[in-house]
Amino acid sequence: MCALCGILGPANHWTDAAARPGVFTRNLDSLQRRRERLQRVACAQRVLSHYRLTLSDWQGTAYLLSTPTGKTEIVDNLTHLWAAAEKLLGRRCDPLDPAVINHLGPARG
């Protein structure tokens, strides 16, 4: 927990796995970790744009998820992201939803 703002530290998420022997991670150094977070924001943003939500990194420790009207949630990791998005939207975020798939465009290959 941050001593200044009281925000709980992020839980250990598999996409953010700690650097341990044998484990695949992009958390090997601070630059790589930062780069991965920004890339994650960019990837998630492509999907979230379907719902008109905006995601941004917050101090390298959390993410801010906002609606067009400015309603904002702080999220720790990708799992919390989808729960927070559903809370802001009042509906489910389903990757199998044809509307989401159409929004993202044709499949690769």
């Binding site: 994650r40 990837c43 999907v47 989808w82 975020c93 389903d94 990757p95």
Partner: peptide, 17 residues
């Protein structure tokens, strides 16, 4: 495949289903 996008997809799938 892109690992980051795969992570976004799988967490979204597992959250919903």
């Amino acid at each position: 495949l892109d690992w980051t996008m795969f992570g976004v997809w799988l967490t979204m799938l597992l959250h919903c289903h």
